[in-house]
Design a protein around this nucleic acid. Sequence first.
DNA 1: AATACTCCAATTTTT
DNA 2: TTGGAGTATT
Length: 776
Amino acid sequence: MKDNYLAELNEPQRAAVTHINGPLMIVAGAGSGKTKVLTTRIAHLLRNGVDAFNILSLTFTNKAAKEMKERVERILGSSEARNLYIGTFHSVFARLLRAEATKLGYPSDFTIYDSDDAKSVIKTILNDLNLDDKHYKPNLVYGRISAAKNSLMSPEEYQHDHAVQQEDMRANRPMIGQIYDAYAKRCFKNGAMDFDDLLYKMYLLLKHFPDVLHKYQHKFKYIMIDEYQDTNPAQYEIIKLLGAAHENICVVGDDAQSIYSFRGATIQNILQFEKDYEDTKVVKLEQNYRSTKSILNVANEVIGNNKGQIPKNLWTDNTEGEKIKLVRTMTDNEEGKFVADTIAEQKLRNHYANRDFCILYRTNAQSRSFEESLRRMNIPYRIFGGISFYQRKEIKDFLSYLRVISNTRDEENIKRIINYPVRGIGKTTIEKTMVFANEHNMTFWDVLVRAREFGFKGGTLEAIDGFVTMIQSFQAMAQQNHNAYDVAIAVGKSTGIVKELFNDKTTEGLARYENIQELLNSIKEFTETPTEDGELLEKSLGTYLQQISLLTDADNGNDENSDQVKLMTIHAAKGLEFPVVFNVGLEESLFPSSMSINTREELEEERRLFYVAVTRAKSRLFITYANSRYRFGNLVQNEPSRFLDEMPEKYLDRSYAGGGVRNAFGGSGNSGWGNSNNMFDRKKTPATTPQSTTSQRPAPKPAVVATNHVPSPNFTPDDPATMEPGMEVEHQKFGFGTITAMEGAMHNRIATVVFPKAGGEKKIMLNYAKLMIVKK
DNA sequence: AATACTCCAATTTTT
DNA sequence: TTGGAGTATT
């Protein structure tokens, strides 16, 4: 380990690093070297005799956890770091919960539901309770349940809490308490926890099992929390419990960057820390190493409009830098053009690479105009956020199999796959099974296993038995020491999913096939990566599932070295920095969002978000806003954002003319209409080479499927009864094909036909679609 | 079973 | 405008 590690730190940084025992709060301004302090402190602890096994370090993202681990390892120059417990709140708690699951009545292979899973459970419950999902919007209900868990409120407490009930009554949604109750029971029955449960159940575990609490209090003698300003009450209480014995709690955060209150975070946690823990040592990191003076000054001025902050004075030794360029365009499309032009120009003038630029917006929906203009200029880019890999339908379907194999209690996932691929288990059968399961207080799966006893017959019984046998054979595989990859391959083969997707030659089908391959590859990679802590069965299916349930695509193919302009929401940009930043869409109702201007608290959070956006920039910052933009299909006019008025004029340059010659005068007041001559450039030029997009994005727009078959002039349908496999037939739309199979009774014949020119295998119901026999 | 349609809603989202 | 969900059509 390096000896001079303390010498590389400034005064307050060193103070933070060398404080070993007792509560410590590090207030770390943007760009003040927070991660460096955290990692160095861990190294310092180890050097001073603390055992790595006794250190717990919690972050919010996998990425942050990974980076921390790597940096500690680098400082130490040894593998001692792998004994540290570094991870996200969710992944660390999931692991502990897995170890103690039986105490709470959960299987140790419990499934983790993401928010889509959770919402679909809520939908079925709304159905059961005969509630209207227009009024009880699943999203909203989920939000209420999530908020309840994040503030450690059980369904019973929720239903008996006066204030909460009042609130629901006023919103005319009195049933949310019951829905919460049913939801919690359903999840438990399914052996599943949602993201919030990972915190809530962890709290319950520590609260109700003193021996468990004692065990972990003694294991985790030193606790570090990153991004403390974004913790919620559940996380707060857990930390309090875990840290109670030693109070060696070190929190790091910046109240000015608290931007997740809508996810339950309370800024109070950091504001109150000193009061919560006596003798707290407070260290403020106020020197910024990231940005120019201009950028930092603007940020400081703007955030100064917020009340109730921890007083601090962020400063920098960096150069003055250029003024902030404030640019107004007439439309959102022009805004896109301006940014793309400017990127091209800056690359030439200041020798930037694509990866030096980042475009930051308030909402994902704003990305479109930038995508278009970047594509038109052939500038490679990558969009972060949006639909994640693991949310794609084909991926979820496939993972459902794996989840069911590892936890058959999970009714939701069974229902997802029981008839995918189609195997003749329809709605009626599923409903019957559900009724039986309820009546006999059994799981859905157990009813399937004993289908014969429940009176299922004939083809249905056969289909169910086939499904059960198949799943059981996978389970047997998983238990016989086959690793996750072997099982996954078997699933792909036996279910026919891989083959089915392979045969689908449409563009989307191809993308789906590739996604599945990518998934299989990632499973393979998982099984082949050496285990970190040498735990047994580490490559099992269960471990794999546990891990990926907590993964987001930000953690995935984040190739730092790929040279692409980055596009993301401001939320997604927290913790990152870029030489040149474009902060776009600075308009009232967009930013600040019209949803968040009703209370002072909401508005202040928007302002913090703006602060985060500004402080991402190292040397150049462009802020743009459009006079009018399309929103939900119609052109709307927006006033310039109020935040623009909060930036002192002396740091601004309103005359930047961009890469081309375009209107760039400004004035946050009403400086009249522009002299733009491209006001009408809405018309879409066809996108040129989409070479720059990435696999992160959903599949490219489907090309027109080649189904434009012109039927033969003598086309006359033939009698379905005479058709047999092997015959060549013609379909009015799909063209010529070969029958590979026939099924169904006389009055409802179904032919499986391979159409080489129209996307491969299709099932044709002969009652409706007509076929003509070409060759017997 | 697959498709074609109609209608409706629409922040941010570390896990 | 987009996308999803639900319904109707073949």
